[in-house]
Design a protein around this nucleic acid. Structure first.
Lengths: 352, 352
DNA sequence: TCTGCTGATTGGAACGATCCAAATGTAACC
DNA sequence: GGTTACATTTGGATCGTTCCAATCAGCAGA
């Protein structure tokens, strides 16, 4: 026993070590490992004892090489540090783990160059599939060049630019951005607001475009006009939202409510309003998007749209697993529903 | 060209395909791939052209098998959904990517059983090293049993239970919890506070014990007594902190300030104080720990301890890379410094 | 004894790369 | 021409597993 632990410092024990160790062939040991019903009970017991004795660890890479299969799935995110994606990743990993897959992680930090590099690096490890939340401005042809048409790919959260050639029949899982923003806008309209702004986000982001579309849809349906200065762009974070807040009130008529691009922006806007002496939820109503943890606990609590990122993660994993199971079925395009969470930031009627 | 893209649907192109495709041996192609100076310029050009033509992708798994090396590192976290760890993971992945490694992700969700399963699963993929932030209550012998003494392991953030045998000479990267809490406490004392509570966290968590130790250290050094009811335990989240808030004021003398286990708890306590009609930062001072994004932007902004999780991630990656480079050097034990960020939640003197 | 059959086991060739020793071609020198 | 030196190239074994066809032992039936 002592001998084993010393020798094991030098070289990992392999199938053959076990085989010679208990006087059977490699093939038999392999069968035991995979729980084949072909092997005799007694030999199975003998082999398993030896496996424990030498404390053998399976070399999945070698097995995958021979079987021309893979047991990993690549998860590439544009911003892992963002809690939304962190929770998503957590869900993905959870579901993949259940299915016996391992997650290859890659974070691109919104850089297209890094996305290329990460894709190229991960693809060399031969993942069975890829879940990709593309960086802003990512392009079909670039992604396709890096991954090649072989590996199944699931696009999450964002579309990629460039008109997709038929070759790329990727699955897609998106959030219902447009409907979400429409719901929020309708909610504000129902409360009596007429001057409603759309605050935050960048025009070149697809999710922002979709949310803006939902907002305009609701406004148009209610017969409300949108003043140009009610569309204020800013980076999707708190700090920039605070800075851009005054732009909302630069011209009249000033809005009495705002649909914000996401929660971070909404929380920033709240802060900006406070700095102007206004009281969010009282003399100005606003909504967010994402339902991050702090949305429910702020003062006032923020009305927002829940997207259930962990569930989306599990769903993404599920979709890619299905794809592996049926490689030839038609590509799927799923728009995950979002849910309006009404809270105090939009309770009160405007004091116009 | 069309032929290639069709045939490539069936089977990945390999070294031999390239070799026969341009009339050289596999060995030569291999040399080209690895940029060896041995090959002639002309043959290199010829081979590279063929590589592009067949758009070959390197099979790193096969190479690793032969070279008995690995190009991946496992990252196992007790709670990926936590922004602190998400940012840490982001830093790890960033640094590992630079070094040409790929990150194998595993999230345990604070479950020891899952930790075992995840470790066992990931180790089969033969990572070159492991970065582990253990689940609460994780044990040396369990971890050791799962990973075997072979693979270098870096312990992050938490110690594991059980007295470590000499066999496990793991590197460790910890946060300076004790000093952090001591700094916060000293800061409150310097502001004039005498009745200071320690709020939140669980006694069985090692980081909580360390922070509590820093608090008592500072109190003792200042000659201040600690009343038993100033130590209030609660789960490390906002919701439970709100619930437990009244316990602080159940008996007199009531504290005028509190050192909180972390930011989440501190933000919850703020909320709880507001519900009691108190004004955090004005008639009660408090500090957090972690410096999460919302700490700076709350009302009032929260005094807390910055731990720079992304930097810690890069550092962890760096440490494990160094370990791979020098497998035999003495195990390292690094305690990362934390930095006190003084903000409005602790500006004012108590109104006693 | 021979044949057929079932249940267990096995040797050897893969998988796609790398390593190594040996072979090849070319130029240079005596 | 023969020897040496150098720059390139290469066949075959190998990493640790799985696949496949072949083998083997044991037993029943003729």
């Amino acid at each position: 026993m002592a001998t084993e632990s010393i020798s094991s410092v030098h070289r990992k024990t392999t199938l053959s070590d076990i085989a010679t160790g208990c006087g059977v062939s490699r093939a038999t040991v392999s069968l035991v490992l995979r729980g084949s019903p072909l092997v005799n009970k007694l030999t199975r017991a003998k082999v398993e004892k030896e496996l424990r004795r030498q404390n053998y660890v399976y070399n999945r890479a070698a097995a995958n090489l021979r079987r021309r299969s893979s047991s990993s799935i690549a998860l590439i995110l544009n911003d892992l540090a963002n809690p939304f994606f962190a929770e998503f990743a957590s869900g993905v990993d959870e579901r993949l783990g259940e299915a016996g897959y391992v997650t290859l992680l890659g974070s691109t930090g919104e850089s297209i160059e890094r996305e290329q590099a990460v894709l190229r690096s991960l693809i060399e490890h031969g993942p069975a599939g890829i879940i990709l939340s593309p960086a802003e401005g990512s392009d079909v042809s670039h992604v396709l060049a890096a991954v090649g048409g072989q590996t199944p790919l699931l696009l999450f959260n964002r579309e990629v630019g460039g008109n997709a050639p038929k070759a790329a029949h990727w699955d897609r899982l998106m959030l219902d951005n447009q409907r979400g923003a429409r719901l929020a806008t309708e909610h504000l309209i129902a409360l009596g607001h007429r001057h409603i702004a759309f605050f935050g986000g960048h025009r070149d982001s697809s999710s922002c475009r979709e949310r803006f579309a939902g907002y305009t849809e609701a406004m148009r349906a209610a017969g409300l006009l949108i003043k140009p200065h009610w569309r204020v762009e800013c980076a999707p974070n708190r700090v920039d939202a605070v800075v851009q807040c005054p732009a909302l009130f630069a011209r009249s008529p000033a809005p009495t409510a705002a649909v914000c691009y996401n929660d971070a922006v909404a929380l920033g806007l709240m802060l900006g309003l406070c700095q102007r002496g206004m009281q969010p939820g009282h003399d100005f109503a606003l909504t967010g998007f994402d339902n991050i943890a702090e949305a429910a606990l702020g003062v006032p609590p923020l009305t927002t749209l829940a997207v259930a990122p962990r569930e989306r993660g599990r769903q993404a994993a599920e979709l890619i697993l299905q794809r592996l199971h049926e490689p030839l079925s038609a590509p799927r395009y799923i728009i995950a529903p979002v849910q309006l969470m009404v809270r105090a930031s939009s309770y009160t009627l405007p004091t116009t």
